[in-house]
């Protein structure tokens, strides 16, 4: 009895001391967190600043030691030179054409296929779904050479077709992402539409797709980004420099002996810019899309 009383008396004091200790500990922890975050942010931002800085430096300033982040003299000439040294405008147009058609193909086919996998119970569904997942692990190099032979037999080398047409057959990654999303849509909606006499395609087109706009935007953004960034396939298929996409065209500034640093960095800025803009416009779709596929892996 007395022990308990004594304990009860001691407790508040101990608790208060403990609480102060925890508070101080929490404070230190937060300070450390912010110091780390700010240091790491500086490290991650730094290459961007370097990129922009170099793109604005006149030629004689690009190669000085010690290097300066900012140019002494701001020079936008590099941005003009980008378009005169090579046919950068043409590369831009090419990249836009390829990306838009690739996105169109990916979205149309992947949504359709994903709906089949998500909602239509057909014989063999699980089997094909396992195959689909399996293809995500297949290195594309295994099929790259025969596919190249097919496209070259069709006379498609040096055209955009090998970069666009395969997208119309759907991409395993996006089919998987969309299937996960479709599965979260309540089934009752489809059932009542079915009772109203709506066809399966009608349900997909008029009910599922409108409800899936965020997922579709995610897929469109990611597929745009991947096409825009793709290097290996344009390298294999495009050999006439009027057909180059940006990823190939930008390499023109890096000759084997002579590198034009300023224009090269200005060109890089111009290649990155549309992606950054798209990111800020569709930020939440980017983050959500990546997170949902990853989490369910």
């Amino acid at each position: 009895m007395s022990m308990e009383l004594a304990e009860a008396k001691v407790k508040p004091a101990v608790k208060a001391r403990k609480a102060r200790g925890i508070k101080a500990g929490k404070r230190i922890e937060r300070i450390i967190t912010y110091v780390l975050l700010i240091t790491l942010s500086a490290l991650f931002i730094f290459p961007f600043l370097w990129l922009i800085g170099t793109s604005l430096k006149p030629e004689n300033e690009a190669m000085t030691f010690p290097p300066a982040l900012l140019p002494k003299e701001w020079d936008f000439a590099n941005y003009k030179d980008v378009f005169t040294i090579v046919d950068f405008g043409q590369y831009y147009v090419n990249s836009i054409i390829v990306s838009i058609f690739a996105v169109l193909g990916t979205v149309l086919s992947s949504t359709l296929v994903a709906y089949g996998f998500a909602r239509i119970k057909g014989k063999g569904r699980n089997f094909w779904f396992m195959i689909l997942l399996g293809t995500m692990m297949l290195p594309p190099q295994v099929t790259m050479i025969p596919v190249y032979m097919i496209f070259s037999k069709l006379g498609w080398t040096n055209t955009f077709l090998p970069l666009i047409v395969p997208q119309f057959f759907g991409s395993a990654y996006f089919i998987f992402l969309l299937r996960q999303f479709f599965k979260t849509i309540p089934k009752e909606l489809e059932e009542s539409a079915f009772l109203d006499g709506c066809s399966t395609f009608g349900i997909f087109w008029r009910i599922i797709l409108p409800l899936s706009v965020p997922a579709v935007i995610t897929v469109a953004l990611l597929s745009f980004m991947w096409t825009w960034n793709d290097f290996l396939y344009p390298l294999i298929y495009l050999n006439d420099d009027a057909k180059y996409t940006l990823a190939l065209g930008i390499l023109q500034f890096k000759g084997a002996l002579l590198v034009q640093w300023g224009p090269m960095m200005a060109a890089s800025v111009l290649v990155i810019l549309p992606l950054i803009l798209l990111f800020f416009l569709g930020q939440k779709y980017f983050i959500q899309g990546i997170a949902t596929t990853g989490g369910k892996g």
Partner: peptide
Amino acid sequence: FYMFILPW
């Protein structure tokens, strides 16, 4: 089902 997954 097969009509839907046909493209893939």
